[in-house]
Design a protein around this nucleic acid. Structure first.
Length: 991
RNA sequence: CCAGGGAUAACUCAAACCGGCAGAGCGCGCGAUCGAUAAUCGCGAGGUCGUGGGUUCGAUUCCCACUCCCUGGACCA
């Protein structure tokens, strides 16, 4: 036996050992739940994030500013969607060459945490100093900051996690206060009595954005108000009659505050008489009122416009009070009676009307919703408890005309889900219509200037976001910024004990900010704060020298809305306006909204805090229902990461069109896990066939590439161009169309690579001379594709791409992690050649036809694997033109055997018409060339001739040049393999 | 109720700007292979393009109406 390897004494036992089969340590099984945490540790050790920052220093900056999630629970899928998308964005901007820092943040103040801490502390809170209670709040928030941080990190989100921003840091708290002072000193802020949404459970005012409408059952009553002014003044026909009107309400508890009855000035009202009494109601609503109030038999005796009822007077049904007739155009004819009971302290419209008519707006309902200074029947009861006694009271006075219950949508507190009430209280407001000046000095208002910014300075994605937020800003009321709670930044203002007006002293304000910077918001709660007040201070309004600290705190939306100042303006390396704010669509009324307002209001170097706003949809289950705790239909991203891997969560995020609502479920995650395995195996095969390949010495030049290899390189080029643009900065990544990236990469790996190129290449890679130009040509392209692909998927498959990177042979000065690399550019991947691409498109169609024919023969039992066959392709003699199959097949004759993966291919000119091609429908447009070509060839599958080579399994004709014969100890080796073996150093010498 | 968005294969997504046989993957069924092997390859079935009208020789595509889902807003008395 003389067939010995060139080195070493070990003789190969079989021909298989002489093949170049794939060889790699890159594991088939990813074992992500274990391998990902290990990789995270390695990244932390090598300080990868800092390395990324270093490599991009000096590059053009691109800033995604993080919207802080609320730190009061573990992550849900919406958080994962949000942060993974941001991570994709930052990573693809980084790989496009930008300096794109990511400073994550957390929103820490506010009611939800305060309520949780209240519950935890119970009665202990009562005898606890404010400072200690606040410490508990801080600890509670910090616990979830830490938890969420670890979970985001686990998902592979890169960022400054060892130093995120937090709205409860001392510095941030000082910046919040500073922002507030800018508003205050700029004349935007006023303190006023206003009806606001009030949660009697949480005992605080709520902003419009903190309201959700839910179904609620209310009593619905009709109440008679007797006229006390002269009926003849309304209409002569009423002279001398006992006249009344009827009001309808679903909030009987507001009746003690009833001060007026509103009529629409332009509505027709009718006077209905029954049994000596006359009732005035709107004409349009008369039928419904007759039915509800048992007035079917009443007779109309007069009709007049509502304007006749202004300043008439009524007797309150149970209080010693005169109630005024007023006019208001918000009175509707859909429901009720057309006569609206008006309690200025308990409704926005009512309040306005009260202002116009000079009515008392004092609220007699306290923080807890208890009625004060009322009759014994209901005094001290909460408003909802007071409904029944008040109805009884009305009934006992004979004024109850009708009663039922209605189930309707009603405003609720979005945090505790209790029904809220309207309550006029002293609150702090930012006046949305504060006069301002444009850059050119023209007069405008805060609202208008904000609207201008929305229109002119921000790109909204999706585009309809602009209309949405513009409508909100255009119609929103003044911003109520005060809350009557503890866990938040105090409205740190001294109020004059004499006139209750705030002390305005910018220098004092600066000192308070400095104090906050040192001690945080706790500073305001200690009496030391009083020491800041210069001893000789007197109120400029009333001369009083007694002041007290305001106890209210700021709306938490003010906190996060100030992040452009607290973070972007403050952190080194950042600056407003950010290139992008990106959150769920709910933030149009939240963070986007308040960030815009605070920035336009008091921003100094800029108007808008963002150049672009992007939004994601909601997470839904497979039935299309929103995911919620109560339904239990949520998919837990941390659980998926623990069981399947964070890559699967990331792949899911990439696979869906986030601009719409997105669907997830266990089954979908499982499918993505399967998909991941496919992608991983494709990479593994690439790596396996690059074993020992050194691009520096083994790569062949573009001109030496085989036609198939050159084609695939351009296919990859096309993919790269679609995914990240010709320069690496555009494409789908540039538009944040990650689902297109995912689907295109997926399709490329499966269709172009796995099912075609890699499959076809096996013969060449395994059996050809390892260092021959044919095999090196293939390896060169495999390497270049792998190099490009691994970078293309790096923003999404953060862990796996870096793993592949480690195993991939590289050039000497390549970065240590794929995340330090740049996106591939098209120039790396050959040059486009339209003729070549058209040729190959057609060759692949021909291949499809042959595969179908092969399958038919396989079914018939003629062949098993394709190599057991030879293919005869009949083509039409007249198809020899430039686009004809005949010409094409001849041009690529040498590639066909490999392309079809068969033992031989013969081309045969057919002397019969293969098909009669004509218009297939009357009046149809002519068929395309490709359609015609489809009918111009006919593949015939025959069993391969000759003998099978034991090494490469090809069949060769016994009389051909490559015929199978003895090689050393091996009896059946084809000529081609013999050549390969000789190049590898094996000898065929007979013994 | 008002405004915006959506509806394409069981699922995730394409295409149709400018009407002319609707495409992938995954999943499913059948088969091949045993040299990517807890892999790989092939073939196949699956769609009245949400419903109903209109324009047109021809509509998933353009127009109108409607249904359902989602998101905001309003729902006050």
């Amino acid at each position: 036996m003389s067939a010995a390897p060139p080195s070493g004494d070990q003789k190969p036992l079989t021909l298989k050992d002489t093949l170049s089969l794939p060889r790699t340590d890159f594991p088939m099984k990813a074992n992500l739940p274990q391998s990902e945490p290990a990789r995270l540790q390695a990244w932390e050790k090598s300080r990868l994030y800092d390395q990324i920052r270093d490599t991009r220093r000096g590059a053009p900056r691109w800033i995604l500013h993080d919207g802080p999630p609320y730190a009061n629970g573990p992550l849900h899928l919406g958080h994962a969607l949000n942060k993974c998308l941001k991570d994709f964005i930052v990573k693809c901007k980084t790989m496009a060459g930008f300096d794109s820092p990511y400073v994550p943040g957390f929103d820490c103040h506010g009611l939800p945490i305060e309520i949780k801490v209240d519950e935890k502390l119970g009665r202990k809170k009562l005898d606890m100093p404010a400072g200690e209670f606040l410490r508990h709040c801080r600890e509670y928030a910090q616990k979830f900051v830490d938890l969420q941080t670890s979970q985001f990190v686990r998902l592979g989100v890169f960022g400054r996690w060892d130093d995120p921003y937090s709205t409860m840091s001392r510095g941030y708290e000082a910046r919040i206060l500073e922002t507030f002072y800018r508003f205050l000193e700029g004349g935007f802020v006023y303190r006023g009595l206003r009806p606001v949404y009030w949660c009697i459970h949480d005992r605080t005012a709520l902003a419009d954005a903190e309201i959700e409408y839910e179904q609620h059952s209310s009593p619905s009553i009709y109440v008679r108000y007797d006229l006390t002014s002269d009926p003849a003044a309304i209409h002569p026909a009423l002279a001398g009659k006992k006249v009344a009107t009827i009001i309808w309400t679903t909030t009987p508890w507001t009746l003690p505050a009833s001060l007026a009855v509103a009529f629409h000035p332009d509505f027709d009202y009718v006077a209905l008489e029954l049994e000596g009494r006359v009732y005035i109601v709107a004409q349009a609503l008369a039928p419904a009122v007759r039915e509800a109030c048992n007035l079917e038999a009443a007779v109309p005796i007069a009709g007049f416009k509502g304007s006749r009822l202004e300043r008439v007077t009524f007797q309150h049904p149970f209080l010693d009070r005169s109630v005024l007739g007023v006019l208001a155009d918000y009175v509707t004819a859909d429901q009720g009676t057309g006569a609206v009971h008006t309690a200025p302290a308990h409704g926005a419209d009512d309040f306005q009307t009260g202002t116009r008519y000079g009515l008392d707006q004092t609220c007699h309902v306290d923080n807890a919703g208890r009625i004060r200074d009322g009759l014994p029947e209901y005094d001290g009861k909460t408003v909802f408890q007071a409904n029944l006694p008040i109805i009884d009271l009305v009934a006992s006075r004979g004024a109850l005309m009708g009663r039922s219950d209605i189930y309707h949508s009603y405003p609720h507190c979005w945090r505790c889900h209790h029904p809220v009430i309207f309550r006029a209280t002293e609150q702090w407001f930012i006046n949305i219509d504060t006069p301002m000046k444009n850059a050119d000095g023209a007069e405008t208002t805060f609202r208008q200037r904000t609207l201008d910014e929305i229109k002119n300075s921000v790109k909204w994605d999706p585009a309809w976001g602009e209309e949405r937020i513009a409508n909100m800003i255009a119609t929103r009321p003044d911003w109520c910024i005060s809350r009557q709670r503890v866990w938040g930044v105090p409205i740190a203002v001294f109020l004059c004990e004499g006139c209750q007006r705030p002390l305005m002293d910018p220098a004092l304000n600066r000192r308070i900010v400095e104090l906050f910077e040192k001690e945080g918001l706790e500073a305001w709660h200690s009496s030391a704060a009083d020491g800041l007040l210069p001893p000789e201070t007197v109120c400029v309004h009333c001369g009083s020298s007694a002041f007290r600290r305001e106890k209210d705190i700021l709306d938490v939306w003010f906190d996060s809305g100030s992040s452009w100042h607290a973070v972007l303006e403050t952190e080194p390396g950042l600056a407003p306006p950010a290139d992008l704010y990106f959150e769920g669509g709910d933030q149009y009324r939240g963070w986007f909204h308040t960030s815009l307002l605070t920035s336009v209001g008091v921003g100094q170097k800029h108007e808008t805090p963002f150049c672009m706003v992007g939004t994601a949809g909601w997470t839904l289950d497979e039935q299309g229902r929103a995911m919620s705790k109560s339904l239990g239909n949520g998919v837990d991203p941390v659980d998926i990461a623990d069981r399947l891997g964070a890559e699967i969560v990331r792949l899911w995020v990439a696979s869906v069109d986030f601009r719409e609502d997105v669907v997830s479920s266990e089954a979908i995650m499982q499918r993505l896990a399967d998909n991941y395995r496919k992608l991983r195996n494709t990479f593994r095969f690439l790596l396996g066939n690059l074993a020992g390949f050194d691009p520096a010495s083994d790569a062949v030049s573009d001109t030496e590439l085989l036609p198939l290899d050159r084609y695939m390189l351009v296919r990859c080029r096309e993919l790269v161009e679609k995914v990240c643009g010709a320069d690496g900065k555009g494409g789908w990544y540039g538009d944040f169309q990650f689902h297109r990236v995912y689907h295109a990469v997926n399709e490329f790996c499966i269709v172009d690579l796995s099912a075609f190129y890699l499959d076809v290449l096996k013969d060449r890679l395994y059996t050809f001379a390892p260092k021959g130009v044919e095999r090196r040509s293939a390896q060169t392209v495999l390497w270049r594709i792998a190099e490009a692909l691994v970078r293309l998927v790096a923003p999404i498959l953060t862990f796996t791409s870096d793993e592949v990177w480690q195993y991939l042979p590289g050039m000497v000065d390549r970065p240590g992690s794929v995340h330090l690399a740049w996106f591939p550019t098209v120039d790396e991947l050959g040059s486009a050649d339209p003729t070549m691409m058209a040729d190959w498109r057609r060759l692949l169609e021909i291949r499809d036809k042959v595969l179908i024919a092969l399958e038919a023969q396989r079914k018939a039992g003629v062949i098993g694997k394709a190599l057991e066959s030879k293919v005869q392709i009949e083509y039409q003699s007249n198809s020899m033109g430039p686009v004809g199959d005949g010409a094409l097949l001849k041009k690529f004759k040498s590639s066909l055997k490999e392309l079809l993966n068969v033992s031989s291919v013969d081309l045969v000119v057919s002397n019969v018409e293969l098909v009669d091609v004509g218009p297939n429908r009357a009046g149809a447009v002519p068929m395309s060339n490709v359609d015609i070509l489809n009918y111009q060839l006919n593949p015939l599958i025959l069993p391969a001739e000759g003998h099978k080579c034991d090494r490469c399994w090809n069949y060769y004709a016994d009389d051909g040049p490559q015929r199978v014969r003895q090689f050393g100890a091996w009896p059946n080796v084809c000529g081609r393999c013999a050549g390969a073996l000789r190049q590898m150093g094996y000898s065929e010498d007979a013994k």
